[in-house]
């Protein structure tokens, strides 16, 4: 299966999220991972041609990633 450019970007964002959650304390890491997973899963049903929505969600996700990747944040629910 080949991914489109936008799909690749989404996967790259997910990968970035997982990489960031590796930097979190070891006992709360799984919280961050499952949170990222849940956030992506919410929009899994989105039509892959719905570019505007996907791009909006990507930007939103990036902002969230920046926010949560600050070292002051140690746990997430």
């Amino acid at each position: 299966m080949r991914y489109s450019g936008l799909q690749k970007e989404v996967l790259a964002l997910y990968r970035k999220c997982l990489r960031e959650s590796r930097k979190k304390p070891i006992d709360t890491r799984s919280h961050f991972e499952s949170y990222a997973r849940a956030e992506f899963q919410k929009s899994l049903a989105l039509d892959k041609k719905d570019f505007a929505a996907i791009e909006y969600l990507m930007r939103k996700g990036q902002r969230q990633l920046e926010m949560y990747s600050s070292p002051g944040i140690k746990d997430i629910r």
């Binding site: 991914y3 996967l11 997910y14 990968r15 997982l18 990489r19 590796r22 997973r37 992506f40 899963q41």
Partner: peptide, 15 residues
């Protein structure tokens, strides 16, 4: 597995 699962497996192996 969906694409997110695949990413997770690859990441686990990277680690």
């Amino acid at each position: 597995l969906d694409s997110l699962d695949t990413v997770e497996v690859v990441m686990a192996i990277e680690e």
